[in-house]
């Protein structure tokens, strides 16, 4: 099963680190978006994307708003979403889960954690 990731983060550094981590764990297919709005545009125009990794704190459309918009969308509403963020408070995690993210990673993360969470999401679908 080929996974094509959409990596959403306003930080160029973080997009790069997430992309490098994906490559390290054997996932070479990914596209990037700098904020939630751009992510929604990419999701609407590229139906080969089947996994979203998003930051929370972003200008314009935040990661949480992005998750809610995705879940409200008929076309790509069921796409797996992994939130990767600095927000590690209980209420933040609960809010993200209520918005229906599939899993949650607190920065700083390692490629191993990323792999573990991606595999958990995929295995729940198998």
């Amino acid at each position: 099963m080929a996974l094509k990731f959409l990596v959403v983060d306003d930080s160029v550094t973080m997009r790069r680190i997430v992309a490098n981590s994906l490559k390290t764990i054997g996932h070479n297919l990914y596209v990037e978006a700098g904020d939630g709005r751009e992510a929604l545009t990419k999701l609407a125009s590229d139906d080969t994307i089947n996994f979203v990794i998003t930051d929370w704190n972003m200008p314009d459309v935040s990661g949480l708003e992005l998750v809610k918009s995705i879940r409200a969308n008929d076309k790509f509403g069921k796409i797996p979403i992994l939130m990767v963020t600095t927000r590690g408070l209980k209420e933040d995690i609960i809010e993200a889960l209520e918005a229906k993210v599939n899993n949650y990673v607190v920065k700083p993360f390692t490629p191993q954690i990323l792999r573990e969470k991606i595999e958990q999401i995929i295995s729940s679908a198998v």
Partner: peptide, 8 residues
């Protein structure tokens, strides 16, 4: 690479 997350 992991440590560079400190920048964000």
């Amino acid at each position: 690479t992991i440590s560079l997350q400190v920048q964000d």
